[in-house]
Simulated scan of single mutants.
Amino acid sequence: MRKGVLEVALVHRPRYDDWSWAKGKLDPGEDWATAAVRETFEETGLEVRLGPPLPEARYLMLTKSGTRGDKVVHYWAATVTGGHGRLENEIDAVEWLDVAEANIRLDYAHDRDQLRALVRAHGEGTLETWPLVVVRHAKSIPRSGWSGDDQQRPLDERGTQRAKDLVPVLTAYGITRLLTSPSVRCLDTIAPYAVQSGHDARSREGLSEEGHEAEPGRAGELVEKLLERGEPSAVCTHGPVMPAVMEVLTARLHLDGGDAVAMLERFVEARDDNLDKGEALVCHVAGVGADARIVAVERHLP
């Protein structure tokens, strides 16, 4: 936004002499959201925080072998948070344009799908959001293989790797507030991001299995407080605690638009399965407090 006017950034690629959105290819093993942030920085020099997902683009392309194949591109709305703005990777110009000028400048019809979605979300008040990420702790040593205090049970090798893999995912959404169960398997799931980002992981007994059993309403209350705060946040907890967390979020669902059905199915599946171990469920929230409503959801699976 500039002086109340919605503006978007388009990039010019001299190789094709076209104007389009910043985009690129996945690195091996890379998450879609992580790639979006990385490619945006590499092409524009701008650091961004991802907002709601936008319509994907699908079209046919020729592979290196000469055969035809589908190309799928995922897009997000994003807010600039920093960066140097130097152009370094296949881009010779970046321009901020209002919607009317962007619609004219874009060279491909499928790129206008994202522009229309941005305009619609802006008009509905669902473009400016903040993320609330629910994380189920990564895979840990099984109870049968641990003789000590269950709260001290650590992650196994796969879980430790997943905790590291979550760092760029949480970074993509600009998470600044971290709440976690005090159990080691939760603390260690969120710890790599806490260390890299410099944000403290605050432990809350109400998010532990033991605390939830003693005080079943506490986890939901903690989530309600985050909704009142409106700060990009992540909550790391356990499968048995998940229903209490998801009950609060279910009441705030306000999904609309072309992908609403798919997002609802995604949310319900995650809720009913208590999330997979190591999963991050991203809820994009518009508004705060009593007005807070979830307008988009994403699942980031291990």
Score class of each variant (00 low, 15 high):
156 D>M: 06
7 E>M: 15
215 E>P: 00
198 G>T: 12
228 E>S: 05
258 G>D: 14
236 C>D: 02
161 Q>K: 13
139 K>A: 13
242 M>T: 07
124 E>K: 12
95 E>N: 04
127 L>M: 07
179 L>I: 01
170 L>Y: 00
93 A>M: 02
113 D>M: 11
157 E>Y: 06
302 P>R: 03
184 V>I: 13
192 P>M: 03
172 A>W: 09
151 Q>L: 11
108 Y>V: 08
256 D>R: 15
267 F>T: 08
280 A>R: 02
116 R>M: 04
164 K>G: 00
189 T>W: 06
226 L>H: 01
249 L>N: 09
289 G>Q: 08
111 D>S: 14
169 V>P: 01
48 V>A: 13
289 G>C: 12
91 I>S: 06
24 G>K: 07
50 L>D: 09
267 F>Y: 15
170 L>M: 06
277 K>R: 11
212 H>P: 05
8 V>R: 13
8 V>Q: 08
142 P>M: 10
179 L>V: 00
285 V>G: 03
156 D>V: 12
209 E>G: 05
110 H>C: 03
112 R>S: 07
247 E>D: 15
108 Y>A: 10
36 A>M: 15
180 T>G: 12
19 W>Q: 09
238 H>E: 14
245 V>N: 11
89 N>R: 14
174 G>P: 11
70 D>N: 04
204 R>S: 09
211 G>W: 06
261 V>D: 14
167 V>H: 00
132 L>C: 09
107 D>K: 05
273 D>V: 12
211 G>Q: 01
117 A>P: 11
137 H>P: 10
158 R>K: 08
185 R>C: 04
23 K>G: 03
174 G>T: 12
227 L>I: 02
229 R>V: 03
257 G>W: 05
32 W>F: 09
207 L>F: 01
290 A>S: 14
261 V>C: 00
174 G>S: 09
80 V>Q: 09
233 S>G: 09
167 V>C: 02
169 V>T: 10
196 Q>E: 15
18 D>Y: 02
275 L>W: 03
27 D>S: 11
165 D>L: 04
113 D>Y: 05
65 S>L: 12
274 N>F: 08
202 R>K: 14
98 D>R: 11
97 L>Q: 13
246 M>S: 10
14 P>R: 12
256 D>L: 11
84 H>K: 08
13 R>V: 15
132 L>G: 06
56 E>Q: 08
11 V>L: 12
170 L>W: 11
82 G>R: 03
114 Q>H: 10
285 V>N: 02
134 V>A: 03
25 K>A: 13
207 L>H: 02
192 P>V: 00
57 A>N: 15
202 R>W: 03
62 L>R: 15
294 I>F: 01
90 E>K: 15
171 T>Y: 02
46 L>H: 09
185 R>I: 07
100 A>Q: 15
235 V>K: 12
101 E>H: 12
163 A>W: 01
80 V>E: 09
166 L>V: 00
116 R>S: 05
242 M>G: 08
160 T>M: 06
54 L>N: 05
